[in-house]
Structures are given as structure tokens and as C-alpha cells.
Simulated assay, not measured.
Amino acid sequence: MADARHPARPPQPPIRRDWWSKSFAGVLLGFTLAIALSGLVTWVGPGGPLAMNKFQFTMWIVAPVWLGVVSFCFLFRSGLRAWLWLGGANLLAYAALLASRGPLPH
């Protein structure tokens, strides 16, 4: 019952069905993408993986990248697009990481 002290609240819209899919894509694929990009910073950045204090930086860069991906995953039109685009970004990032490490040992 609404009165002057407690006005009636409008009904809340339900959570859209694709938000769960987008959320899981952002959390799972966003984490793996952040790990790959952190590895790229390690191998391609100045000094290579042996540069002084680089391990701290690459460790701490994972969280902001991951949170950025999770935040922006809701801009995709559908959950399927989020999975496909983030999956493709993961494939590209890991391919670049593999290529940046040099030739494979025999």
C-alpha cells in the first residue's frame, strides 16, 4: 500500500536472458584473455621476460584487464556474439603469445 512516506515502486524489469551468457563469457573468456595479454606484455615488452620487476607488473595487470572485459561484455548484442568475439580474441592473443616466444623446440 502506497502512502506519502512509502510511495509505490514501479515493477523492476526482469534480468534479460542473454545477460547470464554475457556474464559467463566475460568472466571465463575475459580471464583467459587477460592472462594471454599479460603474457604478451612479458614477452614483447621492453627487456623481455628477464627485465627487472616485470613480474610484478604483469601479475598486477591481469585484474584491470579482466575487469575491463567483464564490464564491456554487456555491450555485445547477444550472449552468442560475446562468446564468439571473446573466443576469437582469445585465439588471436594466444597465437600471438605463442609466436612471440619464438620457434618451438624439437
Rank of each mutant, 00 (worst) to 15 (best):
G26D: 00
S71Q: 04
K54L: 06
L75A: 13
L97N: 04
A36T: 13
T58I: 10
F24C: 06
F74K: 04
F31E: 02
A34E: 06
W19F: 08
D3K: 09
G30W: 01
A8F: 05
L29V: 10
P49F: 12
A82R: 01
C73T: 13
G48M: 14
S71G: 14
F24H: 05
S23D: 02
P105I: 06
V62E: 07
A25G: 01
L84N: 01
L92H: 07
L98M: 09
R5L: 08
G79I: 01
P105L: 04
G88F: 10
L33H: 02
F76T: 01
M1R: 14
D18L: 02
A8E: 12
T58M: 10
F31C: 10
L37P: 04
R81A: 14
L91G: 12
I35E: 06
G88T: 07
S21M: 09
P49Q: 05
A63M: 10
L28H: 06
A25Y: 01
V69T: 06
A25W: 00
T58C: 15
H106T: 08
K54H: 11
G30P: 00
L80T: 10
A8V: 12
I15W: 11
W83M: 04
G87P: 02
S100Y: 05
H106C: 08
T42D: 10
G87W: 08
W66R: 02
D18H: 05
V62W: 02
H6V: 09
A25N: 00
L50M: 12
L40R: 12
M1D: 09
F76N: 03
G48C: 06
S100P: 01
D18V: 07
L37R: 03
I61H: 07
G45E: 00
Y94R: 05
G39E: 15
P7I: 07
D3W: 11
A4Y: 08
L67H: 04
L91Q: 01
R17Y: 02
V44I: 13
G68K: 01
S38I: 09
L80Q: 13
R9L: 13
D18N: 04
T32K: 04
R77N: 12
Y94Q: 11
W83H: 10
R81I: 14
A34I: 02
W83Y: 07
G48H: 15
P64F: 14
P49D: 13
C73Q: 12
L97K: 07
M1T: 10
G68V: 03
C73M: 12
W43L: 07
P64A: 06
L91A: 15
A95L: 10
T32F: 12
P103E: 11
A95R: 05
P46K: 07
S38A: 15
G87I: 10
I61A: 03
P46V: 08
W43F: 13
K54V: 15
G30N: 02
V44E: 01
A4I: 10
A63P: 11
L98N: 05
R5W: 11
A8R: 13
D18I: 05
P13L: 12
D18Y: 02
K22L: 00
W43P: 03
C73A: 15
L92P: 08
A2S: 14
W60S: 15
W85T: 13
F74T: 00
A99L: 13
